[in-house]
Amino acid sequence: MLGPLTIMVVYSLWRVENFSVVQNVSFDNYAYLIGSPIYIWLTAKALLYGAIVTIVTLIISVPVAYFMARHIGPRKGLVVTAILLPLYTSELIRYFAWRTILGTEGMLNGALLRLSVISEPIEMLSFSPVAVIISLVHVYLPFMILAIWVALEALDPALLDAAMDLGARPIRMFGKIVLPLAMPGIIAGVLFVFIPVTGEFFGVNMMGGTTGFTITNAINDQFTSAFNWPLGSALSYMLLLSIGVVVAVFLVIVSRLRMVRNYVGREV
């Protein structure tokens, strides 16, 4: 693990001149990146995709996981298998499936046209941020659901009885009991989804076309086309660092929440 990372650090401090690597240690690559609006924008875009996909999966997963934990008894195995099923198929197949559904001449547009809901195919469905988000949400949803489900499965149903018994209406019960106790699962799920989605290369390109271009494309280009490994390494580190900063900020905010702070429990 640390080996490649260390090599990358060293590389990122070198430079390329006349198509060959010059082994002069400097921070020129990083200075160049920070001064370059295009690389900053591409990094921000990767983080933005990560954030949006994480938020959408979170919104879908909490009720689904809650329902699974509370209302599905003997058929639990079946439901878990159904949720895991997408993970058994290749990512490539899943993205192609979404392309046939969302394409300009795809199934969704076709159906809407035939039902006369629309008169022109919706262009926005294919090779657009919307397509990226829909397909990435689909691909990463199982991770979020499973993480939250495991947390909610451990939730003692007697606590919900006690909350209602003491006068809590469903919304209060959800906000004050279910959500705080699901927090460990939510945090795990957010990390499971946010980190890989931000670093996603394949999916964003397959589904987004040019709109799916993020910093990961730039990294890929530096390594495979431009053969500027030092710059590629520096770009990788910029992405890694920015993910690290976002995750750290997220964890700090979460741990400051009153409900979580109590859960983590400071002794007085």
């Binding site: 007697a158 606590l159 009885d161 006690a162 909350a163 009991i177 106790l181 409900m259 109590n262 859960y263």
Partner: peptide, 10 residues
């Protein structure tokens, strides 16, 4: 309640 069902996060 039998096992008291105290809220562990409070």
């Amino acid at each position: 309640f039998q096992d008291y069902a105290l809220f562990p996060h409070m």
